[in-house]
Write a protein that binds this DNA or RNA. Structure first.
Lengths: 245, 245
DNA sequence: TAGTGGTCTAGACCACATC
DNA sequence: ATGTGGTCTAGACCACTAG
């Protein structure tokens, strides 16, 4: 038994609840006893129960609805391929049985932060680019927030389509050939603002997929990032390995 | 201003503290006022201050030390390449100026879970494989927990080396040529057990990098996952795109 | 000994859902 | 009107750090 450190009450209780849920005592969709009742069941205060439930919420095991109760969730993750088809979120969602749509929050011409200007290889760091901010929905559930910067090389011709469509599908439909990409993946917890957008509990992990994509002529096309709910999404890839040696 | 929903006190306070930290009012390494003092400064209870500080801890902005105080952290992430060199964590760490070592927690012959048996393409799902569990350190800080399953095709010859070394570096040093890999990335929050291993606060996001790697003959070599602290690590990749059409 | 963060309690008030 | 989760308070006790 590793690191059997005596643990706090709230983690012990969330473990116990997790076991009970996995044992089928509370099937998916079921409501858990109220926080008050759980407090009596375990003989602890409601505050401690709330901390235990918060642990389960972060793990995506349960969700809460004010005024209704705490419910066992059941969901399997949507997987996005990092390789092929490249970042076609709408295609990936449809292939996995979801209807996909977006809501554009912002689309405007701005002076990008220095890092973006560098990544887009702008000749003049003070020149402006288009910035879009949108929410991606799967079956009316917000699963990701996308922040893109578009250089003038592809705008404004595609502005109207990009405003209301999925970035890489719009590009593909308009014959913009992508040739290379640099991507990175990290994770951050939701802040208050992000939790509002994604209807996610505060502090739940988000996957941050950052990318710069390049056209055939090595010119950057898009620089942006997609912040997706970790309880809904994962990223996958398959590749052959060059054994340099 | 998007979703300007009136927010809870504790998130407002953590935002304010974050701004003050970023503004240089509390430089990296500095100690914040005690929770009691912060409570008086903001005119709220210590409980609310603790929630605000917990938000900052999750974001990796501050760390706490019992009996000493709350300190502003300063760190930049270690990036692991998903493409090349493949999963050589020790190399990646050294290239980024860290000393790398591991601590083996377990190394034993077990019957793998069905999913692992499938991924390793075991002819008999009840046959046993070697399982290793180890912690990866960067400069004596635990940054990742690695869980690997090794089929008998490469063991037991390499057992001693795998027990005390970095998986893919041991394989490379012994001429095991990797030919392909399937990987996925997701994120989960630390449970109590994981937070003990990684000396991370409960609920902080972890990056889960799962992989199956294959030898030249398409035989699986390793199936496992690396759970790494999201405040220390990120994964990157660069690739050319096959425009299938 | 004094000060710090870590945990837990008991209770208050609120907003929301249901009947 | 009642029950639910969401927030916040005031205070207790503990474990750890420091002088």
């Amino acid at each position: 038994m590793p690191v059997t450190d005596k643990q706090p009450l709230h983690t012990a209780i969330s473990q116990k609840l997790k076991q009970q849920i996995e044992a089928g005592q509370y099937p998916p969709g079921d409501r858990l006893p109220s926080e008050f009742d759980l407090g009596e069941l375990f003989g602890v205060s409601r505050t401690t129960i709330r901390r235990a439930v918060a642990n389960l919420i972060h793990q995506g095991i349960v969700t809460t609805q004010q005024g209704k109760g705490t419910f066992v969730s059941d969901r399997q993750k949507i997987s996005f391929s990092m390789s092929n088809p490249l970042m076609r979120f709408d295609l990936a969602l449809q292939q996995q049985g979801y209807t996909a749509h977006i809501k554009s929050l912002r689309f405007e011409r701005v002076q990008p932060p220095p890092e973006v200007a560098r990544k887009l290889q702008l000749p003049d760091p003070t020149s402006k680019v288009y910035q879009q901010e949108k929410i991606i929905y799967a079956d009316d559930s917000p699963i990701a927030l996308e922040l893109d910067y578009f250089p003038d090389t592809i705008l404004p011709e595609l502005a109207d389509q990009l405003r209301e469509g999925f970035t890489y599908s719009v590009l593909a439909a308009n014959g913009v050939q992508l040739n290379a990409a640099k991507v990175s993946l990290e994770s951050i917890p939701t802040t208050h603002e992000l939790s509002q957008y994604l209807e996610a509990p505060l502090g739940m992990p988000l996957l941050v997929f950052s990318y710069v994509t390049y056209q055939c002529n090595r010119q950057p096309v898009v620089c942006g990032k997609t912040l997706s709910r970790s309880d809904w999404t994962c990223y996958t890839s398959e590749f052959e390995i060059d054994n340099v040696e």
